[in-house]
Simulated scan of single mutants.
Amino acid sequence: MSGYIGSKLTDEDAQRVAEFERSADPNDREQQALLDEMRQQLKKLQDLKKNEDPRLSFCTPEFKDAQRTFTDAFKRNFGNPVEWALVKEYPWSTPQLRKVDQQQQ
């Protein structure tokens, strides 16, 4: 459910790479190139996991609540009166930005 690296990268991944290193032929260039790519990818993911904070995930209930609160406040112009709005004079005209005479909330 969560989208951060910590939930996807496990110790089994490092063990699997070590197992491939043991069983690979040291004289086969293709296998060594593949192992090198696997090592680089594993190191990159481990570095990302090391510096990662799961509280910053977009899937946490805290983030969703903060996003909902911000969206509600944004829709209400953060409590400030609306001064400018896109106004259509007629239903067929294009909206134009104009200063609103009466204060709306």
Rank of each mutant, 00 (worst) to 15 (best):
F78Y: 14
D47M: 04
E37F: 10
F70D: 07
K99L: 10
A85P: 06
V82A: 13
S93V: 00
S2H: 05
A18C: 00
E83I: 05
D11H: 06
M1E: 07
M1Y: 06
F74D: 12
D65F: 08
E83V: 06
Q41H: 04
E19W: 06
Q46K: 14
S2Q: 09
L45F: 12
N80Q: 14
K43W: 00
Y90G: 04
P61F: 02
Q46Y: 02
R68F: 09
G6E: 03
K99E: 15
E83K: 11
E52N: 14
L34R: 15
Q103E: 13
P54C: 04
W84M: 12
E21Y: 07
T69W: 01
Q32G: 08
A33T: 12
Y90A: 10
I5N: 04
D53V: 02
E37P: 00
K44S: 05
T69A: 11
F78P: 01
R22W: 02
F74R: 14
D11F: 03
D28H: 03
E89Y: 04
R55V: 01
K75P: 00
L56G: 07
D25S: 12
C59A: 15
F78T: 00
R98W: 05
L34F: 08
Q105N: 13
M1W: 02
R76N: 12
K49A: 08
E83Y: 07
V87I: 14
D65V: 08
I5D: 05
F70N: 13
K44Q: 10
W92D: 07
G6M: 03
F74T: 00
P91Q: 03
Y90S: 12
E83S: 04
L35C: 01
A66P: 00
L97R: 15
A18I: 01
D101S: 14
F74V: 00
A14E: 15
W84E: 10
D25T: 00
Y90L: 08
Q31E: 13
Q46T: 02
Q32M: 13
L56K: 11
R16G: 01
A85I: 07
R16E: 06
N27K: 12
L86R: 09
D53N: 12
A24W: 06
D101I: 10
A24V: 03
S7Y: 09
A73H: 04
R55H: 07
E12H: 09
M1R: 06
Q103I: 12
M38Q: 09
R98L: 10
R22I: 13
N80W: 04
F63E: 04
A73Q: 13
A66G: 03
T60H: 03
T10C: 01
E21K: 15
T69S: 05
I5K: 02
E21F: 01
I5E: 08
